[in-house]
Design a protein around this nucleic acid. Structure first.
Lengths: 103, 103
DNA sequence: GTTTGTTGCTTACCTTTAGTAAGTATATTA
DNA sequence: TAATATACTTACTAAAGGTAAGCAACAAAC
Protein backbone atom coordinates (compact mmCIF):
# COMPACT_ATOMS: atom_id res chain seq x y z
CA UNK A 1 0.00 0.00 0.00
CA UNK A 2 1.09 3.50 -0.70
CA UNK A 3 2.49 5.17 2.36
CA UNK A 4 0.50 8.30 3.11
CA UNK A 5 2.03 11.31 4.77
CA UNK A 6 0.81 11.62 8.33
CA UNK A 7 -1.01 14.86 8.98
CA UNK A 8 -0.52 15.96 12.59
CA UNK A 9 -2.88 18.92 12.10
CA UNK A 10 -5.69 16.61 11.11
CA UNK A 11 -4.91 14.34 14.02
CA UNK A 12 -4.92 17.22 16.48
CA UNK A 13 -8.11 18.59 14.99
CA UNK A 14 -9.87 15.28 15.31
CA UNK A 15 -8.71 14.73 18.83
CA UNK A 16 -10.30 18.05 19.66
CA UNK A 17 -13.50 17.74 17.65
CA UNK A 18 -13.75 14.09 18.37
CA UNK A 19 -13.58 14.44 22.07
CA UNK A 20 -16.92 13.68 23.59
CA UNK A 21 -19.31 16.67 23.87
CA UNK A 22 -17.21 19.09 21.83
CA UNK A 23 -19.23 18.68 18.66
CA UNK A 24 -22.45 19.29 20.51
CA UNK A 25 -21.07 22.26 22.43
CA UNK A 26 -19.84 23.88 19.23
CA UNK A 27 -23.21 23.36 17.60
CA UNK A 28 -24.86 25.33 20.40
CA UNK A 29 -22.25 28.07 20.11
CA UNK A 30 -23.01 28.56 16.41
CA UNK A 31 -26.22 30.25 17.56
CA UNK A 32 -24.21 33.17 18.88
CA UNK A 33 -23.03 34.19 22.35
CA UNK A 34 -24.53 31.91 24.98
CA UNK A 35 -24.27 31.40 28.71
CA UNK A 36 -23.26 28.36 30.69
CA UNK A 37 -26.86 27.38 31.47
CA UNK A 38 -27.91 27.80 27.86
CA UNK A 39 -25.38 25.22 26.81
CA UNK A 40 -26.09 22.80 29.61
CA UNK A 41 -29.84 23.08 29.01
CA UNK A 42 -29.32 22.13 25.38
CA UNK A 43 -27.18 19.10 26.24
CA UNK A 44 -29.00 17.66 29.27
CA UNK A 45 -27.05 14.41 29.30
CA UNK A 46 -23.79 16.25 29.93
CA UNK A 47 -22.74 17.10 33.50
CA UNK A 48 -21.67 20.57 34.58
CA UNK A 49 -18.18 19.34 35.25
CA UNK A 50 -17.76 18.09 31.71
CA UNK A 51 -19.02 21.40 30.34
CA UNK A 52 -16.57 23.34 32.47
CA UNK A 53 -13.70 21.09 31.36
CA UNK A 54 -14.62 21.28 27.68
CA UNK A 55 -15.15 25.03 27.62
CA UNK A 56 -11.71 25.48 29.16
CA UNK A 57 -10.15 23.24 26.54
CA UNK A 58 -11.95 24.98 23.71
CA UNK A 59 -10.87 28.34 25.06
CA UNK A 60 -7.24 27.23 25.28
CA UNK A 61 -7.49 25.81 21.76
CA UNK A 62 -8.62 29.25 20.57
CA UNK A 63 -12.10 28.24 19.42
CA UNK A 64 -14.08 29.89 22.18
CA UNK A 65 -13.89 33.28 23.86
CA UNK A 66 -15.10 33.75 27.42
CA UNK A 67 -16.39 37.15 28.55
CA UNK A 68 -17.25 38.04 32.15
CA UNK A 69 -19.91 40.65 32.94
CA UNK A 70 -19.53 41.55 36.64
CA UNK A 71 -23.24 41.87 37.39
CA UNK A 72 -25.12 40.08 40.15
CA UNK A 73 -25.47 37.26 39.66
CA UNK A 74 -22.40 37.21 37.48
CA UNK A 75 -23.04 36.77 33.77
CA UNK A 76 -20.55 34.96 31.61
CA UNK A 77 -20.84 34.66 27.86
CA UNK A 78 -19.19 32.13 25.63
CA UNK A 79 -18.82 32.78 21.94
CA UNK A 80 -16.88 31.40 19.03
CA UNK A 81 -13.72 32.99 17.71
CA UNK A 82 -13.08 33.18 13.95
CA UNK A 83 -11.26 29.87 14.23
CA UNK A 84 -14.31 28.37 15.88
CA UNK A 85 -16.76 29.89 13.41
CA UNK A 86 -14.74 28.43 10.55
CA UNK A 87 -15.78 24.97 11.73
CA UNK A 88 -19.41 25.45 10.79
CA UNK A 89 -19.20 23.91 7.29
CA UNK A 90 -17.49 20.84 8.70
CA UNK A 91 -20.10 20.33 11.39
CA UNK A 92 -22.87 20.97 8.86
CA UNK A 93 -21.48 18.14 6.75
CA UNK A 94 -21.45 15.84 9.76
CA UNK A 95 -25.02 16.78 10.53
CA UNK A 96 -26.10 16.15 6.94
CA UNK A 97 -24.47 12.73 7.05
CA UNK A 98 -26.10 11.93 10.38
CA UNK A 99 -29.54 12.84 9.09
CA UNK A 100 -29.16 10.70 6.00
CA UNK A 101 -27.47 7.64 7.45
CA UNK A 102 -28.08 7.26 11.16
CA UNK A 103 -30.62 4.67 12.35
CA UNK B 1 -32.35 31.85 24.46
CA UNK B 2 -34.31 29.94 21.91
CA UNK B 3 -34.65 26.31 22.82
CA UNK B 4 -33.23 24.18 20.04
CA UNK B 5 -34.51 20.71 19.31
CA UNK B 6 -32.03 18.09 20.39
CA UNK B 7 -30.77 15.96 17.55
CA UNK B 8 -29.93 12.46 18.77
CA UNK B 9 -28.63 11.44 15.34
CA UNK B 10 -26.09 14.22 15.41
CA UNK B 11 -25.14 13.31 18.94
CA UNK B 12 -24.71 9.64 18.04
CA UNK B 13 -22.73 10.55 14.93
CA UNK B 14 -20.39 12.74 16.87
CA UNK B 15 -19.88 10.20 19.59
CA UNK B 16 -18.78 7.80 16.88
CA UNK B 17 -16.68 10.16 14.77
CA UNK B 18 -15.43 11.97 17.78
CA UNK B 19 -14.14 8.91 19.52
CA UNK B 20 -10.42 8.88 19.54
CA UNK B 21 -8.75 7.30 16.45
CA UNK B 22 -11.94 6.90 14.42
CA UNK B 23 -11.32 9.97 12.26
CA UNK B 24 -7.84 8.82 11.43
CA UNK B 25 -8.91 5.24 10.75
CA UNK B 26 -11.64 6.40 8.39
CA UNK B 27 -9.19 8.62 6.56
CA UNK B 28 -6.98 5.62 5.86
CA UNK B 29 -9.99 3.59 4.71
CA UNK B 30 -10.92 6.23 2.12
CA UNK B 31 -7.92 4.95 0.14
CA UNK B 32 -9.78 1.72 -0.56
CA UNK B 33 -9.64 -1.78 0.95
CA UNK B 34 -6.78 -2.04 3.41
CA UNK B 35 -5.39 -4.60 5.82
CA UNK B 36 -4.87 -4.39 9.55
CA UNK B 37 -1.15 -3.65 9.23
CA UNK B 38 -1.76 -0.97 6.61
CA UNK B 39 -3.90 0.94 9.04
CA UNK B 40 -1.63 0.48 12.03
CA UNK B 41 1.41 1.49 9.95
CA UNK B 42 -0.36 4.73 9.01
CA UNK B 43 -1.28 5.53 12.60
CA UNK B 44 1.86 4.51 14.50
CA UNK B 45 0.82 6.12 17.77
CA UNK B 46 -2.21 3.85 18.05
CA UNK B 47 -1.89 0.41 19.68
CA UNK B 48 -3.13 -2.80 18.08
CA UNK B 49 -5.71 -3.20 20.80
CA UNK B 50 -7.24 0.18 20.07
CA UNK B 51 -7.35 -0.58 16.35
CA UNK B 52 -9.09 -3.90 16.99
CA UNK B 53 -11.62 -2.20 19.27
CA UNK B 54 -12.34 0.62 16.83
CA UNK B 55 -12.65 -1.59 13.76
CA UNK B 56 -15.18 -3.72 15.62
CA UNK B 57 -17.17 -0.64 16.59
CA UNK B 58 -17.06 0.76 13.08
CA UNK B 59 -18.18 -2.59 11.70
CA UNK B 60 -21.08 -2.77 14.15
CA UNK B 61 -22.01 0.82 13.26
CA UNK B 62 -22.19 -0.22 9.62
CA UNK B 63 -19.36 1.98 8.35
CA UNK B 64 -16.80 -0.74 7.73
CA UNK B 65 -16.98 -4.17 6.14
CA UNK B 66 -14.54 -6.92 7.13
CA UNK B 67 -13.63 -9.64 4.64
CA UNK B 68 -11.57 -12.73 5.52
CA UNK B 69 -9.43 -14.45 2.88
CA UNK B 70 -8.44 -17.87 4.31
CA UNK B 71 -4.91 -17.90 2.93
CA UNK B 72 -1.74 -18.46 4.91
CA UNK B 73 -1.06 -16.27 6.61
CA UNK B 74 -4.67 -15.17 6.78
CA UNK B 75 -5.54 -12.01 4.93
CA UNK B 76 -8.27 -9.71 6.18
CA UNK B 77 -9.46 -6.67 4.33
CA UNK B 78 -11.31 -3.72 5.75
CA UNK B 79 -13.27 -1.43 3.50
CA UNK B 80 -15.90 1.26 3.82
CA UNK B 81 -19.57 0.61 3.23
CA UNK B 82 -21.70 3.19 1.40
CA UNK B 83 -22.53 4.69 4.77
CA UNK B 84 -18.83 4.99 5.52
CA UNK B 85 -17.96 6.41 2.10
CA UNK B 86 -20.63 9.06 2.55
CA UNK B 87 -18.54 10.55 5.33
CA UNK B 88 -15.76 11.68 3.02
CA UNK B 89 -17.06 15.24 2.42
CA UNK B 90 -17.41 15.77 6.16
CA UNK B 91 -13.88 14.59 6.88
CA UNK B 92 -12.56 16.65 3.97
CA UNK B 93 -14.08 19.74 5.57
CA UNK B 94 -12.44 18.92 8.88
CA UNK B 95 -9.12 18.46 7.12
CA UNK B 96 -9.49 21.77 5.27
CA UNK B 97 -10.23 23.51 8.55
CA UNK B 98 -7.26 21.84 10.23
CA UNK B 99 -4.89 22.94 7.49
CA UNK B 100 -6.07 26.53 7.65
CA UNK B 101 -6.37 27.01 11.39
CA UNK B 102 -4.24 24.57 13.36
CA UNK B 103 -0.97 25.82 14.91
C1' DG C 1 12.36 -31.00 13.50
C1' DT C 2 13.11 -26.98 15.76
C1' DT C 3 13.46 -22.20 14.95
C1' DT C 4 11.86 -18.04 12.71
C1' DG C 5 8.43 -15.19 10.52
C1' DT C 6 3.82 -13.54 9.38
C1' DT C 7 -0.92 -12.16 10.36
C1' DG C 8 -4.56 -10.52 13.19
C1' DC C 9 -5.71 -10.50 17.10
C1' DT C 10 -6.13 -11.55 23.02
C1' DT C 11 -5.04 -11.09 27.64
C1' DA C 12 -3.51 -9.06 31.89
C1' DC C 13 -2.39 -5.12 33.98
C1' DC C 14 -2.10 -0.23 35.10
C1' DT C 15 -3.13 4.69 34.22
C1' DT C 16 -5.90 8.30 32.60
C1' DT C 17 -10.29 10.20 31.67
C1' DA C 18 -15.29 10.36 32.16
C1' DG C 19 -19.22 10.58 34.99
C1' DT C 20 -22.05 11.32 39.50
C1' DA C 21 -23.50 13.70 43.34
C1' DA C 22 -22.89 17.00 46.39
C1' DG C 23 -21.09 21.49 47.84
C1' DT C 24 -19.31 26.58 47.27
C1' DA C 25 -19.44 31.90 46.95
C1' DT C 26 -21.96 35.74 45.82
C1' DA C 27 -26.00 38.35 45.86
C1' DT C 28 -31.19 39.13 45.06
C1' DT C 29 -35.89 38.08 46.18
C1' DA C 30 -40.05 36.61 49.28
C1' DT D 1 -34.83 33.21 57.33
C1' DA D 2 -35.08 30.61 53.49
C1' DA D 3 -35.15 30.05 48.75
C1' DT D 4 -33.26 31.09 44.13
C1' DA D 5 -29.79 31.93 40.74
C1' DT D 6 -25.10 31.67 38.54
C1' DA D 7 -20.91 29.35 37.37
C1' DC D 8 -18.29 26.58 38.94
C1' DT D 9 -15.39 22.92 42.61
C1' DT D 10 -14.52 18.86 45.02
C1' DA D 11 -14.45 14.05 46.18
C1' DC D 12 -15.41 9.87 44.65
C1' DT D 13 -16.33 5.83 41.46
C1' DA D 14 -16.79 3.76 36.85
C1' DA D 15 -15.24 3.42 32.29
C1' DA D 16 -12.02 3.93 28.77
C1' DG D 17 -7.35 4.23 27.11
C1' DG D 18 -2.62 2.56 26.87
C1' DT D 19 1.42 -0.93 27.39
C1' DA D 20 3.57 -5.11 26.90
C1' DA D 21 3.43 -9.61 26.25
C1' DG D 22 1.45 -13.77 24.31
C1' DC D 23 -1.36 -16.81 21.00
C1' DA D 24 -2.87 -19.80 16.98
C1' DA D 25 -2.32 -20.92 12.44
C1' DC D 26 0.46 -22.12 9.19
C1' DA D 27 4.98 -21.71 5.92
C1' DA D 28 9.60 -21.58 4.91
C1' DA D 29 14.35 -21.67 6.43
C1' DC D 30 17.95 -23.77 8.66
Amino acid sequence: MEKMNLCPKFETAFQLLGKRWNGLILRVLFQGPVRFRDISANIPSMSDKMLVDRLKELEIAGLVQRTVFPETPVRIEYQLTDKGKALEPALDEVQAWAEQWME
